[in-house]
Amino acid sequence: MIILIEAESEIPIYSQLTNQVIEGIARGDLCPGDSLPSVRAFAADIGVNMHTVNKSYHELEKRGIIKIIPKSGAVISTHTEIPESTSQRLSNELKPLIAESLVIGMTEEKIHELVTSILKEFKQN
C-alpha cells in the first residue's frame, strides 16, 4: 500500500500517516492481522523522524486500530464489537463537521449523499 505525505501541508505529518493507514484498512489494502513496518524502517523509507512514526503508531494504538506487540511490531487489530467510548468519540468528532455542513446550507439529503459517496469510494476496492 502506498503512503504519500505532503511535506508542507497544514496537517501534521503524524496525522497524515495515521489517516492514511486507517483509510488503507477501510479500503481493504491492509487487513486485520497484517503488520506495519518497524518504526525505524518506516521512518527511513519515507524520510521522516522516527518520533513522527512513533507518535502515529501510538495514536493508532490509542484508537484501537493496531496493537503494538513487543518483538513482532505493530499488528492491525480485528474488531468484533464497537466499544462505547469509541462510538462516543466518533460522534463528538463528526458533530462539528455535520454542524458546519448545515451552517453552509447543505440539506440533510445532501449530507447523506456525501457520506454515501465516501463510503462507496472505500468499498470500491
Binding site: 500500500m1 511535506a7 488503507g24 519515507i46
Partner: peptide
Amino acid sequence: KQVQMTDLS
C-alpha cells in the same frame, strides 16, 4: 507540491 512516498510492502 512536495511529497514523500513509500510503499508499505
